[in-house]
């Protein structure tokens, strides 16, 4: 009856595994993260002392700094210079519709150039105030930290993929999606031809306006995300109208993964969203979208409460920082900053 001990030993082994997983050592180099909405929650919980700081998109970082409630710990551009952030993505169907794609790219390029033209500064600030609902001082501060771009740098963009893969976020491989190589995947994922075509046409004739598309579209963006100002400018300056783009152009989402869910259900044809969730969900859920343009580089920041003892990234050890969601650009940037200082992310209860 010796082998009667086997089940008992097995049970003991199982139980010790179970208990080992219950204990979280407090000694490691951990930074606690909490998921909060940038609009409202983050500021309120930082002021109440529930969290020590947060990482959000503009204008939420600038807002607490201008109001004297918070201070920048570090800008995302210092963590990863010129990192791509928000992009313009389209569904597989739209990607095949040359006319529609050209019209969209035209409106996006016109709007981005409008924003980057110093002569329009007053107007841009005005639009930024309307889009985000924040006052002049806040948006002027926020705009300083955002680089509005027309197309992301492919090499930099692929860092999202590399890092997501390394840190265990990716559940599928490129091969599972039916691509022979990573280069093949990115050629399809980062579609540049429509952008190049529009830029070329505009160079030949700055007053060129493309033909109106044949169908209506549903277009989305993140609520009051100043990175996506190009969308608001295109709407208000009448670029969508001039290009003949019609449909529901004003759909709003809370964060990038929510936009991807909407793409999956067919609720969206075109949307602005962060590059990290776009890559993550493109691969994990095989949601067939294509990135056809960039919106901005940089423009996120880690902010902490004014007068906080936290002066460096190392000081974040044992503190709580809020992110807008797991798998967002900000989650990604925070992890990147922490890893450089041998800190790890841990969920806050």
């Amino acid at each position: 009856m010796r082998w009667r001990f086997i089940p008992i030993l097995l049970a003991i082994a199982m139980l010790s595994v179970l208990f080992a997983g219950c204990v979280e050592s407090e000694e490691g180099n951990y930074v606690y993260v909490a998921k909060l909405s940038p609009a409202g929650e983050m500021r309120a919980e930082m002021l109440s002392g529930d969290i020590d700081g947060f990482i959000a998109w503009e204008p939420y970082n600038a807002e607490v700094v201008v109001k004297g409630e918070g201070e920048y710990l570090i800008q995302s551009g210092e963590i990863w210079p010129d990192h791509p952030c928000c992009v313009l993505a389209v569904s597989d169907e739209v990607a095949k519709d040359e006319k529609l794609l050209t019209a969209l790219l035209w409106a996006h390029v016109k709007a981005t150039r409008f924003i980057n033209d110093p002569a329009n500064h007053e107007k841009v600030v005005q639009y930024a105030m309307e889009f985000t609902g924040k006052d002049k001082e806040v948006v002027e501060e926020a705009l300083k930290h955002i680089k509005f771009v027309e197309y992301p740098d492919e090499k930099e963009f692929r860092k999202y993929y590399e890092r997501l893969k390394e840190s265990g976020f990716l559940q599928n491989s490129i091969k599972d999606l039916g691509y022979a190589s990573e280069d093949g995947f990115f050629k399809d994922f980062l579609m540049r031809n429509a952008y190049d075509y529009v830029v070329e046409k505009l160079r030949e004739d700055p007053s060129w306006i493309p033909d109106a598309p044949d169908r209506e579209i549903n277009m989305g963006h993140l609520t009051a995300d100043l990175h996506e100002l190009a969308w608001y400018v295109a709407l208000k300056e009448g670029y969508f109208q001039q290009a003949g783009i019609k449909g529901n152009l004003e759909k709003q989402y809370a964060n990038g993964p929510a936009v991807m869910e909407a793409f999956k259900s067919g609720e969206l044809d075109v949307s602005y969203l962060g590059g990290a969730p776009a890559t993550l969900k493109r691969i994990n859920d095989d949601i067939r979208i294509h990135i056809v343009a960039g919106a901005n580089n940089e423009g996120s920041a880690i902010v902490v409460k004014k007068g906080s003892e936290i002066k460096t990234i190392e000081d974040l050890k044992g503190r709580t920082i809020a992110i807008p969601g797991f798998g967002t650009v900000q989650d990604f940037i925070l992890r990147m900053a922490l890893e450089e200082h041998n800190l790890e992310v841990r969920l806050k209860d």
Binding site: A34, K35, L36, S37, E41, F169, L170, Q171, N172, P257, E261, L280, K281, I283, N284, D285, G325, F326, G327, L347, K348, D349
Partner: peptide, 20 residues
């Protein structure tokens, strides 16, 4: 909503991130 821990949150986040 605003929840950010627990087993329900775990399941939801895994769905959100997708793929597994």
């Amino acid at each position: 909503g605003g929840s950010a821990s627990g087993i329900g949150f775990f399941i939801w986040t895994m769905y959100y991130i997708g793929g597994d």
